[in-house]
Every structure is written in C-alpha cells, then in structure tokens.
Design a protein around this nucleic acid. Sequence first.
DNA 1: CCGTAGCATGTTTACGTGAACATGCGCCAG
DNA 2: CTGGCGCATGTTCACGTAAACATGCTACGG
Lengths: 327, 327
Amino acid sequence: MADVAREAHVSGQTVSRVSNGRDNVDAETRERVLAAMHKLGYRPNSAARALRTGRFHSIGVIMFTLSSFGNMRTLDAIAIAAADAGYSITLIPVPHPTLGEVSVAFDRLSEEAVDGVIIIVEAHLLDESDVVLPAGLPVVVVDSTAADRYPMVDTDQAHGARLATEHLLSLGHRTVWHVAGPERSYSATHRREAWESTLRAHGADVPPVLVGDWSSESGHEVGLELARNPDVTAIFTANDQMALGVLRALHEAGRAVPGEVSVVGFDDMEESRSFWPPLTTVRQFFGEVGRLSVEELLQEVESGERGGSTLVATELIVRESTARPPA
Amino acid sequence: MADVAREAHVSGQTVSRVSNGRDNVDAETRERVLAAMHKLGYRPNSAARALRTGRFHSIGVIMFTLSSFGNMRTLDAIAIAAADAGYSITLIPVPHPTLGEVSVAFDRLSEEAVDGVIIIVEAHLLDESDVVLPAGLPVVVVDSTAADRYPMVDTDQAHGARLATEHLLSLGHRTVWHVAGPERSYSATHRREAWESTLRAHGADVPPVLVGDWSSESGHEVGLELARNPDVTAIFTANDQMALGVLRALHEAGRAVPGEVSVVGFDDMEESRSFWPPLTTVRQFFGEVGRLSVEELLQEVESGERGGSTLVATELIVRESTARPPA
DNA sequence: CCGTAGCATGTTTACGTGAACATGCGCCAG
DNA sequence: CTGGCGCATGTTCACGTAAACATGCTACGG
C-alpha cells in the first residue's frame, strides 16, 4: 500500500479510501491511485484488513462427508449466495460423524477466520455434544432440530412425506409401506412420523417400517423383502437412492412398476427422472434452503438480529413409477 | 493475549510460545498459561497471526457448480486431506462456467486469504482466459490439462477408457459404440480418444460418436437412437449418469441388457451398483485425486518445490450390464 | 572461583490496514 | 473584508501476533 501511495503521490489513507470505494476522493486523484494500484499489481491484504475491521467476510460450513446428494446441493447454494453477498465459504469437514470428531471441528472453528457458521450435522450429535461453540459467533443450523438454541432452516420434511403418502392413497392403494432412513437422522424421523400420521388420518393400516441407511444398496436389501410380500402395492422411500435400490429389487423379483407396485422417492435428484421407470418423487429445494440459511446468518452477522426457524415447502413430482393398484 | 499474559503473570511472548506449541517453555509456566487461556476463553486471532506470518493456512478451491458427482467427491477428499494438514478450505464458486465468471473468480481470488489454489475447471477456459492468476500463488490443476503452466493431478482417463473398451471387445463384441461427454471437456475428449485408439488397435470399426452433456437425460436421448440400431451390441458411455439414461432407453425399446446390448459406464458412483442391471463401470479414485492434489499444493506452499503431473489409475468394476454379444 | 554456555523469559518492533483526528484550501454569508 | 464551513487529503495510532534481540539465571568445566 505504501508503494502505491508513493507512486500516486498520495498518502496511504487515500489509497485505503480508494480501495474501499469511499466517495470522498477527488475523481482525478482516484484515477491516479487506481493506475498506481494496477501498475504495481497491488492487492489488499485481507489479513490486515480483517485484523483492523474484525470482519473476515467468510462463512464457515461444518458438514459431514459431502457425498450426500442433498448436502452437496445445499452447499452449492450456500456458496453462491455467500459469494453474491461478498462472503467466501470456509469448509470445516467432519470426516467421521462421531462425537469426538464433531468436538474437534467445533474446536477448530474457534480458530477459523469466520464471521458465522452454518452447521449441517445431525442434530442428535449437536445435542449430545457438550462442546460449546465460541460465544458470540452467529450460527444457523440446517437439516436438524436445534431450533431452541439456534435459528434453523430446513426442508419441510413432514409436508413432503404427506404429499407422497397422500398421492399413493389417492391412487387407490389401501396403504403405503415405508422405507425409512437411519433412526438417528432427524429428517428420516420427520418423514417417517408424517407418513404414519397421514396413514392414520386416512384410516389406513400402518405397516411395519423398514429401515435403510440412505444408500441404494440398503434400499435394495429391504426392497427384496418388500418384493416377496404380495400385499405390498405402494412404497414410499425416504430418499431417491433407496428408491433406486427398491426398484432394482422389484425388477429382480419380476414385479412390475408401476403395474403391480408403485414407488415414490424423496429428494428429486437429477438422475431420478432417468430411473426405470422414471421416479415419482418429492422435490426438495436445496437451493432455497442454502440461500435462506445464508440470508439468515448474514442478517445476524451484520445487524445482530436473530431470526427464527424457516421451513421450505416441497413439491410432488409425478412421473411414471406410480399408478393405480392392480385390480 | 495481553489478558492471558497478565492472568498468568508472564509476557505476551510466552503466551505466544505456548499457543504455538514451542518446546522452550517451562512445564510449570506452560500449565499456568494454559489455565489462564482456558479461564479467559482465549482464542488466537487468526487474522493477526496471518498478518504476522504471511500464512493463512487455507487452500482456495475454484470450481463450477458442485453438482457433478466427481467434483464433489474430489472436493470432499481435498477438504479432508487439507484438514489433516492443518489447512482449511476456502470455496470460490463459479456459478456459470463462462469466461467472465472465471475471470471474476480469479480476481476475487487475489483478495482471498489463501496460501494456494486448486482449480477444478475445464482447461479450455483456463487457456482462453487472459486473466492472470496472482503471481507467486501456488496452483494445482485438477481434471484438466494446463500441465504446461501448472502441476496437474487427474484420473488416467485414457487408461479407464481403454479398460472399458477392451472389456467389451474381449467379450466378443465386434465393436463398441461410444456416448461421449461435451466436446469442450478435456476428460470427455481423453476418454473418447482412448476409446477410438483402442478400437483401432484391435482392428475394430469406429462407429460414429454420440455426444451427451454428462446428464442422464442426455444419455436417454442418445440411448433412444442407439436402441433403434440393431447393430449396436456394446456401448461405452463416458459417465455413469449417461449410462443410466441409456439403460432406460434400452428398457423402453425392449432391448435386454446385457442379453442383447452390453453397457459400460465411467465413474462408479455409489448408485451404479443399484442400477438395473447393476452397471459395469470404470472406477475413478476421486479420493486419491483430491489427496494428491493437496499434497502437491502443500509441497509447493511449504517448500517452494513444484512437482509435475500425476495420473491416478482406474479400475474396471465388472457387474451385470455386460455379457457376450447375442449369437 | 570465574567465565561461559544454555535455557527460560521479557522487550521491542513491524506486519498492512482503516478509524479518528488534524490540516489546509476555497467559497460564501454577513 | 473576514469568519467559518465543507471538502480533499494527510498524520497518527492501534488492531493481535511472532520474529529478533535482550536479559538474567543456572550449571558446569578449567
């Protein structure tokens, strides 16, 4: 900066003013400074700036392995929304979802140069974790239920599960079987509860729940079981990947989809429309979730006002994996 | 820090030494300082530290939309490898893969607090872009070919494509059709070239190339065309998602897989084993690519030594979508 | 018994920036 | 004509840290 000041025959303070786009600089002086900055290849030092202002213009994101489709889409939206607001994203990975790892991530967090944090971690770990997040650091929780402690943004899981279940019932199925996600997942629990309450509200029987781990492979395993049961005519799986496994199991068992069995997924991943048959599913608006969580966080960072919880609605996408039950 | 020093009756410098784990501090003093740090909830200020040391302990990652399966896996591995080395990841998203956006990202980069950058962007954009990366900033390029300007780490695309093509030929297919990725993609080009040269090496005809855009939907479109052609008995698609679309098209056309037509993909995404039928494909080791790119980058950051290019081998995963051609 | 080496610790300083305050000049109202 | 006001610009200083150098004490060999 000093070099630029010398080159442009001004003081460092004036360079700073130009660099920050203040308007109380004479047009001619500004030009001279800009020319000098360009000539010398000047780049503001973000560390010094952060030290002086106390703002890092960066948002931390704590998340487990990115390999979950939904997390990735959410992260993508967060990154874009943050960039639009002039913030960058600092990833704080948690390689294994154990309590210890989460604690380590939180600890590391306190030394990270971030103005706020978005946490995309199963809530039960948050609850069990006695590690305290650095005080005064704004936090937004996604896909979880720590709403009592922090603002939360999430897909309206219950709404989606109800849409899926009611769609199948309205086609004439007597009841709907459910392939749930892992017990410890809050979103899996929400979907399962909404499925169950929807069945009860319509006076349908509630069949036993089959539990997977979100993977297509686990969907295949429980799908083999469902395929053997001739009573099963409608299946709601808690995500699209498990639906893929269920479809494969049904094909292997020679049960026609949707002729004999209808299947509905959850997520609407890009590939779902190319499943065989194309999958009827509940679309989640991950982009919206990411956008809103950044909005919420930045509001707290910049104005100190803390918002409440926000749920993002879902949409049922009807494709070709659902039909009326066999006569 | 001053508060901690006062609390522990030592100088700030001693606090700094404890904070950095230097060993030239008396055990008793260290205990006293640690106690004071804990009591006061002291957290080192990373901005000041970065200002003083010139190191940010952060790696920038420039990438397009995360929604590509492979990029995500790579990013995940980068994040974990970086965390292991004590670095965090700063994401610099490029919402749209246009020249302008890339320039903006590079510009933004120069103000980011990073010690080095990993670029996961189609190389043709790098080549066309006249934006100069900040001089002196270590760069590693992934999934691209700017090897002449920067070290590169990538999957051995040609090796994988050869494995896939030879697998089909060795099953007895007269030739292999290819569904390529977009023309401007270097990895798509490499796979296509290797497929073609493998066919030639084996004296097989080279059928016309069909081009998709990596999406399962585009795979479905070109798949419909292939399904109509009775000469087609073996298809190598440039990624698994397009293979999914091709499978769907073949099902719709009533052509048995692998009875009439064999299909091989590329990537080995988690879902591929649950396709119908489970997909024979070329596995990419994204984790290895990510790990190596961090290793290469940090070597340059910390020792100034710049390495060369590294290719990561692939592995053919034979499942149930390939068989001998019909008699 | 003294000189010195080695070690724990303290003091000073600079990293690059922007806020706060200071300066100097031109212009306008009284 | 003069006092004061507004505006562009300059000067000073502190943000929190760690490197470089300084200090003072202990221990050990000649």
